[in-house]
Nucleic acid binder design. Structure first.
Length: 474
RNA sequence: GGUCCCAUCGUCUAGAGGCCUAGGACAUAGCCCUCUCAAGGCUAAGACACGGGUUCGAAUCCCGUUGGGACUACCA
């Protein structure tokens, strides 16, 4: 047996968990679960000015909602500064890092000049051999990057990628305020946490040669790298807020199911033949880095919506009823203290399942099942609550009031009998009833609706519709 | 500007030199089913960026062009 698989997801709490981050997390999680390895969560919060606990909590909430459980962590880099100091000390002792006293203004000026003359914008190494001693202020610690030869990144997705060492600059590993920087802490943590595979966005591919040199400076075993292609917006630029919702939790609020998000994101860049729908277990079983594509993918909200409706259709109505409840409360269809029969609710949910693409939609459709009265759409009323329609309405009402067993089957009998006696299509009766009961022209089967709404409420609504015409409202 | 990555229907993708008159899915259109709306079923339209090689044979390999993207911080 080879060494244990250990991967990590390392978000920085400078924002909520977004779609791209979630996909990286999913791939890491899938990889760990597939190989029965360890998935660790690490919080990269070395940028203290931009990191907040609020974002951290939101990220954790998002992970939990998606069902991405981790085995170790969350570790916070701000808790590990002594570790980084230690590692940095080793580098200094071995002459692999040096202090730099260049000012930001000076560096910026040099960058300008480099751009103007078409040279790479890299640090010129001014302080490299000056042997500067650390001062209280304004000395940063830089890593001595090799300046000759090539470095090959052997990436599990991108293949062999070569970089010229001369393109790499002596990056700052400890800021002048004493805090360590990303490219350094990443390596230290991955060494310290014994990470075997680094699966991350390919926006980090250019950082990888620098990081490899740091690994080498510590004579550490090299992890395997796998750089995932980016997720793009519809205009093919990197997915961002201007393309719409990018926060995972925003999708929760819009009424998406976590399994739809996970399925969609997993399929974005990864595939298993022609299969589109995967259970979690299937994904874990089939997942393989080999089947991850190399090219960036455009995020397609429509396909996500389709997957969501698929999962809603195939969800247990009782579970859906529980999930839709917060939406009903938020819409004030149900009051917070209202005692609602979840079993009864699930019957209505059952009818609405295949007509709702989101829980939000589902909640809206539930309104006419739950509310006492229904608001009738004027257009629908005009079309179906005609003199003729009203006539059928009252006949249905009469038959219904005589009915003992208010079941869909019995109700159907009433409707079909009536259509036969008048020699008219079922729709001529069903549509007016539908309008009277639901307020609109589109709904689940009318017999089932009546069964769920119940005899009393149905008759009340039919009567109200009949009265409205009598008052000249049409 | 420099470095690096990428390139099959509108979108996600299958495709590891002959199985490809390029398959599936979303979206779109039509039909069927039908009490409406959905769901479901069937059908249609729709792609190998371009140019050179290599090969008996290329979507698949190589080179170039073009186009997109990422990185280029004392951010991560």
């Amino acid at each position: 047996m080879n060494q244990q698989i250990r991967v990590r997801f390392a978000p920085s709490p400078t924002g909520y968990l977004h779609i791209g981050g979630a996909r990286t997390a999913i791939f890491n999680w899938l990889f760990a679960r597939h190989y029965k390895g360890i998935f660790t969560l690490r919080i990269e919060d070395t940028d203290r000015s931009r990191s907040t606990d609020e974002f951290l909590n939101l990220i954790i909430e998002g992970m939990k909602w998606l069902g991405l459980d981790w085995d170790e962590g969350p570790f916070r880099q701000t808790d590990r500064f002594d570790v980084y100091k230690n590692y940095a000390g080793r580098l200094i002792k071995e002459g692999k890092a040096y202090y730099c006293c260049c000012t930001p203004e000076e560096l910026e000026r040099k960058r300008q000049i480099a751009v103007a003359s078409g040279l790479p914008m890299k640090y010129d190494g001014k302080c490299r051999d000056l042997n500067i001693k650390p001062a209280y202020m304004s000395t940063a610690l830089r890593f001595k990057m090799p300046q000759e030869g090539q470095i090959i990144v052997n990436d599990l997705i991108k293949g062999h990628v070569a970089f010229e060492n001369s393109q790499l600059e002596d990056l700052v590993i400890i800021r002048s305020d004493g805090t360590p920087t990303y490219n350094f802490v990443v390596v230290v943590d991955d060494i310290d946490m014994n990470i075997s595979h680094i699966i991350r966005g390919d926006d980090h591919l250019n950082n990888t040669p620098k990081q490899i040199h740091i690994y080498e400076a510590f004579a550490s075993k090299m992890p395997q790298f796998a750089h995932l292609p980016m997720i793009l917006g519809h205009d093919k630029s990197r997915l961002s807020k201007r393309h719409g919702a990018t926060s995972v939790l925003a999708y929760k609020e819009m009424g998406y199911l976590p399994e739809a998000i996970v399925n969609y994101l997993a399929r974005l860049g990864w595939s298993h033949g022609d299969q589109e729908i995967f259970t979690k277990d299937e994904m874990i079983e089939y997942f393989s880095i080999e089947n991850i594509g190399k090219s960036a993918a455009v995020f397609n909200p429509e396909k996500l919506l389709w997957l969501n409706s698929h999962y809603i259709i195939n969800s247990n109505p009782l579970r859906l009823a529980g999930m839709v409840l917060p939406f009903l409360i938020q819409k004030k269809i149900v009051s917070e203290d209202q005692d609602i029969d979840i079993k009864w609710l699930s019957k209505a949910v059952n009818l609405l399942r295949e007509r709702s693409k989101t829980l939000d939609e589902l909640a809206n459709s539930l309104r006419y099942f739950i509310s006492d009265s229904v608001e009738i759409d004027p257009k629908a009323s005009q079309k179906f609550l005609t003199t003729e329609g009203i006539k059928y309405l009252s006949e249905i009402r009469d038959s219904l009031s005589r009915l003992q067993d208010v079941s869909a089957a019995e109700i159907e009998k009433i409707f079909t009998d009536l259509s036969k006696t008048h020699n008219i299509k079922l729709g001529a009766i069903a549509q007016p009833v539908r309008v009277a009961l639901t307020g609109g022209t589109a709904s689940p089967g009318i017999y089932e609706i009546i069964e769920i709404i119940g005899k009393e409420k149905t008759i009340k609504r039919l009567s109200k519709a009949i009265e409205q015409l009598g008052k000249g409202f049409s």
